[in-house]
Structure formats: structure tokens, C-alpha cells
Amino acid sequence: MDAMTTAECIHVYQHSRLQSESFTPEAVAAAYVAGLAALQEKAEADKPLTLEELEKMGGKPVWIVEYPKWGHWELSEYGEDYLEDRDPDFYGMTAPESIPDPLGKYGLHALGWLAYKKEPEVTQDGKPG
């Protein structure tokens, strides 16, 4: 989701059902800030973590996508443990389009892997989104 321009924010505010004499401008602004933060958090959760972000996920559950399970939760006390037994060079490695990979899912090569903050929704073509 792209960031909204100031003009778009003003348009949404002007046409909002939140406008009411019973709401203060501060309450409306707080509602929008909370809503936009929630949308941003959701958009970020649907994207794969970077390796740097993954290393900071110690103590937090991570959805790992890799062969043969193609999706499972892991929880580690130290974020570096998520990289143990996995080659960082294969992180996000996709299957070449010219060579169909019958094992691939999420668009990954059988050796590729990804990590997410939450289980991503998967489209019909097997890719997150």
C-alpha cells in the first residue's frame, strides 16, 4: 500500500462518516492515525522479512516457508537461530520461470526459503499476496 498524499488524506477526512459534532478533531485524528498504523502493520506483515529483520525476531514466532513443509511456525529465543541449518544465500531464491519446478511453492525454488511475521495468504498460483 502506497503512502497517501496530504490531498488524499484531506479528501478522506472531508468525506468520512467519522465527522460529527460529537467527535473532537483530536478524536478523529487519533482514529485515523490508529487505522493507518493498522493498515501499515498489515501491509508490512504480508511482506517477507529481510534477513536483518529475521535476526531481530528472537522470542517472536516466525512463519517459515521451505521445502518440504512449505509453511510452518517456528519460535526461537534468539533470532539468529532461525538461520541455523538454513543457507542465507538461498533466502528468497525463486524457481526459474523457464524451468517449471514441481516442488516449488510461493514461487520458491525447492532450495529457497522465506520468513514472515504471519502466515501470508497464498493466491491460486501459489504465490503470497
Rank of each mutant, 00 (worst) to 15 (best):
D2W: 00
A3Y: 01
A3I: 00
T6C: 00
A7V: 10
A7F: 04
I10K: 03
V12L: 15
Y13G: 01
Y13V: 14
H15R: 10
H15C: 02
S16D: 05
R17N: 07
L18G: 03
L18Y: 06
L18T: 02
S20T: 09
S22R: 12
S22W: 10
F23D: 05
F23L: 12
F23C: 11
T24K: 04
T24A: 04
T24D: 00
E26T: 03
A29L: 12
Y32P: 00
A34C: 01
G35R: 08
G35P: 01
L36S: 09
L36Q: 09
A37M: 09
A38H: 03
A43Q: 09
E44I: 02
E44N: 10
K47S: 09
P48V: 05
L49E: 05
L51V: 12
E53D: 14
L54Q: 06
K56A: 15
M57L: 03
G58I: 04
G59L: 08
G59F: 00
G59I: 10
P61E: 07
Y67Q: 12
P68L: 02
W70I: 12
E74V: 03
L75D: 02
S76Q: 15
Y78D: 14
G79C: 08
G79H: 08
E80A: 12
E80Q: 12
D85P: 00
D85T: 15
D89M: 11
M93E: 15
M93R: 15
T94D: 05
T94K: 15
D101L: 01
K105C: 03
Y106Q: 02
H109P: 02
H109S: 13
G112H: 04
P120D: 03
E121S: 10
T123E: 13
